[in-house]
């Protein structure tokens, strides 16, 4: 029997397996399941998107845990939403029984900080201290580490990412190579770590995210008619060569290339929208929805790390959606655009 890390895209129908129950998470699972009931329903988000004004959209949040946003301007709302995200992440750290899982999800902020610091360092700009505080490495440490060019206080995976990014940058002094290298190292690290933790849910999630990131990358490269086929991340179920081959095909043939994968429908919807509206809203919405579906399956596990991780990611997604709707409403964007991004 193949392990989840070795599974190919043909070994499952829509989502990879979510893994076994883990009764060490009984309390945490119960808590997030109760918190899940307070999350905004799809209907509320759609009503907000269809609201006639920013104030009306904000009023619809009055009965939810976002009621504190009432009467605030957009800047204050963005700050409050960041604070909310911080609370959710903090709750996750409290509930995560395995430190490894907590580190794995904290690493997102570390890699974001690392990307910013390296871009500044390699382009000889001031390192600064305006980094995210949510990571494993604290924001203030970044300044010292990069000023002194002594990377030993950083975890090994970050040092490897720095080395890869610096080497990639100095090949042709293209700043995007830093991002490509860090993204690749990030995915390599999280998938390897999830495999080491023997967490099937996380392995499935990260490999699926690698696929969805690569599909979006492929469509973005095709849209830009880019000559260099780079920016793909490793670890997905779909082979990178298939995605590179897709860039040279016409849009109809791209759909056919994904016929035997669980991504066929989302690629079809995303490509159709891209061709008709010259926009990536649909493919991004479909990718979010696909991941949301997998997380919802994870939420159904009675006890385990799955509901806890799923709650964190679903809550973060909800915060992004609230920010999207309120920003769009404040700037008088079309309701159709918002609904296209949120999904029906």
């Amino acid at each position: 029997m193949t392990t989840i890390a070795e599974k190919s895209v043909l070994d499952f129908c829509l989502y990879p397996p979510v893994g076994e129950e883990d009764w060490r998470y009984a309390f945490a699972s119960a808590q997030v399941k109760s918190l899940e009931t307070f999350m905004l329903s799809k209907a509320v988000l759609q009503d907000m998107a269809s609201a006639s004004s920013f104030e009306e959209a904000l009023d619809l949040l009055s009965a939810s845990e976002y009621s504190s946003l009432q009467g605030k301007n957009l800047e204050q709302i963005n700050e409050a939403l960041l604070e909310k995200r911080k609370q959710v992440r903090s709750l996750f750290l409290d509930l995560a029984v395995d430190d490894g899982i907590a580190e794995l999800l904290e690493a997102r902020s570390d890699f974001a900080n690392l990307r910013l610091a390296l871009r500044r360092k390699l382009t000889e700009n001031p390192i600064g201290v305006d980094y995210s505080e949510d990571g494993f490495v604290k924001a203030l440490e970044f300044e010292n580490v990069f000023e002194q060019e002594n990377y030993s206080p950083l975890p090994i995976y970050m040092r490897e990412a720095i080395e890869a990014a610096v080497l990639a940058y100095y090949q042709n002094k293209d700043i995007r190579q830093i991002d490509y290298a860090i993204d690749a190292e990030h995915f390599r690290y999280i998938i390897a770590k999830a495999i080491a933790l023997k967490d099937d849910f996380l392995v499935g999630l990260f490999r699926m995210r690698a696929d969805l990131t690569n599909i979006r990358t492929m469509l973005r490269l095709k849209y830009r008619e880019a000559q260099e086929l780079c920016g793909f991340v490793p670890g997905g179920y779909v082979d990178e060569s298939v995605l590179k081959h897709c860039i040279n095909l016409d849009y109809d043939s791209i759909r056919a290339m994904f016929f035997s994968t669980p991504y066929y429908e989302l690629v079809e919807a995303g490509v159709n929208y891209l061709v008709s509206d010259k926009s990536f809203l649909k493919i991004e919405q479909q990718c979010d929805e696909h991941i949301g579906g997998y997380l919802s399956e994870g939420m159904m596990v009675t006890a385990g790390s799955q509901p806890v991780i799923a709650y964190l990611l679903l809550k973060e997604s909800e915060i992004r959606k609230v920010r999207l709707i309120l920003t769009a409403k404040k700037n008088l964007l079309d309701t159709k655009l918002i609904l296209d991004r949120l999904g029906e």
Binding site: N78, A112, N113, R119, N125, Y131, L281, L324, N331, L337
Partner: peptide, 25 residues
Amino acid sequence: TSRRFMLARATMEPEDTKAALEIAT
């Protein structure tokens, strides 16, 4: 342009937006 940019910024995490746009090529 600004409509697309606002949509993009609203869907991205603030730290990612900052990292992406701080240094232009």
